[in-house]
Design a protein around this nucleic acid. Structure first.
Length: 210
DNA sequence: ACATTAAGTGATT
DNA sequence: AATCACTTAATGT
């Protein structure tokens, strides 16, 4: 369990930490729970203490495209932009693992932006970080390098689950990368031939050569 | 043993 | 890179 107070004591001013403790609501959700669906309105800004949240776009046919993961001590950038304009969510947030977070009611956003300069820079930095990351994935998509996207996906997954064994079917991976199962199967087979992974049913073993 | 679901593969666009 | 059509392998009942 990560201590929010400890981690942010250098980034946030003491008054902000105090207010965070007063106003924040600790919430627990289990793996697989949906934190926010498409079309719902954001009521709480989450700051993760523990666990992992997957944020993805859902297109009109119900196809999913993975955008990013929210790690402990991070917040979901989309909720910032989204709630400040009081707009409905265009993304979906699902807990990938059992997760604990502090929820800050949205009405404090505006207030804190003016009141605490450290809050403002935290928000800005988060946005900048994600934005750069998104630019990267856009590059990859437009240059059609699905193989590299897949490798990146596997690495991230392994980091996130802290394991070299990934428990996913090719079908599930294909859905998250918005392609077809056949394509994923082929690419994975290729990686296996290159000696970078091992394939089993519903499992993929990542080798350090990846 | 049989049905179901995951994965592998050639051919076509 | 996607889709189709088909095979093979693994798993559940």
């Amino acid at each position: 369990m990560v201590s929010i107070k400890d981690h942010f004591k250098d980034t946030f001013e003491p008054e902000l930490l105090e207010e965070l403790g007063k106003v924040g609501i600790i919430q627990n959700i289990s793996a697989g729970d949906t934190l926010l669906g498409v079309g719902e309105t954001v009521r709480l800004i989450p700051i993760l203490i523990n666990g992992i949240i997957k944020v993805s776009r859902i297109d009109s046919d119900g196809k999913e495209l993975l955008l990013y993961y929210v790690n402990p001590l991070e917040s979901c950038v989309m909720t910032f932009t989204c709630c400040m304009q009081h707009r409905a969510s265009e993304i979906q947030a699902v807990a990938e693992d059992d997760t604990t977070f502090i929820g800050v009611p949205v009405q404090y956003m505006d207030l804190w932006m003016d009141k605490f300069s450290t809050w403002k820079s935290f928000v800005m930095q988060s946005i900048q970080h994600r934005f750069n990351e998104l630019l990267d994935t856009i590059d990859q998509i437009t240059f059609q390098k699905l193989d590299e996207r897949l490798i990146r996906y596997l690495k991230e997954k392994s980091k996130v689950t802290d394991s070299t064994l990934i428990n996913l079917s090719h079908e599930q991976i294909a859905r998250e990368l918005a392609t077809s199962r056949v394509v994923i199967s082929r690419l994975l087979k290729q990686l296996e031939h290159e000696g970078r992974i091992l394939l089993y049913r519903n499992q993929i073993k990542i080798l350090r050569t990846l």
